[in-house]
Design a protein around this nucleic acid. Sequence first.
DNA 1: CCTCTTCCATACGGTGCCGTATGGTCCGGT
DNA 2: ACCGGACCATACGGCACCGTATGGAAGAGG
Lengths: 171, 171
Amino acid sequence: MALRAMAEGGVAAVAVEPLAARLGATKGSAYWHFPNREALLKATLERWEREHTEAVIELVRSVEDPAARLRLLFGTVLEAVEHSAVELAVLAAKDHPVVAPVLARVTARRVDYLEAVFRDLGFAADVARHRAVLAYSIYLGQAQLLAAAPDVVAARRALLEETLALVTSRG
Amino acid sequence: MALRAMAEGGVAAVAVEPLAARLGATKGSAYWHFPNREALLKATLERWEREHTEAVIELVRSVEDPAARLRLLFGTVLEAVEHSAVELAVLAAKDHPVVAPVLARVTARRVDYLEAVFRDLGFAADVARHRAVLAYSIYLGQAQLLAAAPDVVAARRALLEETLALVTSRG
DNA sequence: CCTCTTCCATACGGTGCCGTATGGTCCGGT
DNA sequence: ACCGGACCATACGGCACCGTATGGAAGAGG
């Protein structure tokens, strides 16, 4: 619920009074469950941290071929637009003291996982690292672009293929 | 001034009372120059639109070789971190009714320019378009990543070279 | 049946911002 | 010397949110 609110209204929407109203409850109730607004926000973010990273990794883990694994990974995260609304909301609040550490952990975890995939693809350690950062940049940028100017990104399927081809190309 | 405030505190910081205080003035003064907060924000965003896109294009226009032009372009926009704070602030407020149209125009303008550069590089129209969207995604994602988790992006110079190599590689 | 804990509601004061009203200063034109 | 417009300050009411205080309902155990 709080995650849905965050997806729609950003981190600012994870606020006591609006959320209580949305749930048909009152502030009194909310302040029994959480000591203050910061705790509510923290709980919401940590829930996002737990659910929205390992879930994808888990989904993809079973795929043997690393190229197919990468394709499934990118395909999954780039199709779910409403899913990535939460991501963008978190990024938009990157300077908030409660958000920053969670965001740093999630980012590091994801890039590290991507790095492992590129090593599975046969890239040397340093190259794999670069490709991982690059691939994650493309994901972030594309999510941002899709949300900010969807008409600019017309042929999404073709773009996905082009992205995969480039990011896994040798030499 | 308002742009500086936006870079530091996001779109929310472009507010009448905080800005007036920052300038050592009062609300009364501010509301003489602008009818309301929305007008102030709009003026700030349109100033950003005018200054932060054409300036870079102008800087780069003189370079003959399209590959060198692209290198200069990416190098310029990816080095200026404090510069890109404004960009991220605008992206973070992409759903704000005043922000959305400005952001859409700026995005379209930039991707179109990139597309022209890739055509200059000899790519066919459709491929040039894909590369342009991809390149702009990388820029957005990298700016985001640099701001959200700077330690993840260690070797920036090498990453720039890798980016350029991939994005201009022939399929 | 009484009581204690759990959970929720009402009511209050505080803060930061918006926007309006109104008065004051300074300055060029006559 | 006067006046009108440009510019700025003070003061007010309103709104949305935070957090606290306090008073219930409603079930569990003695």
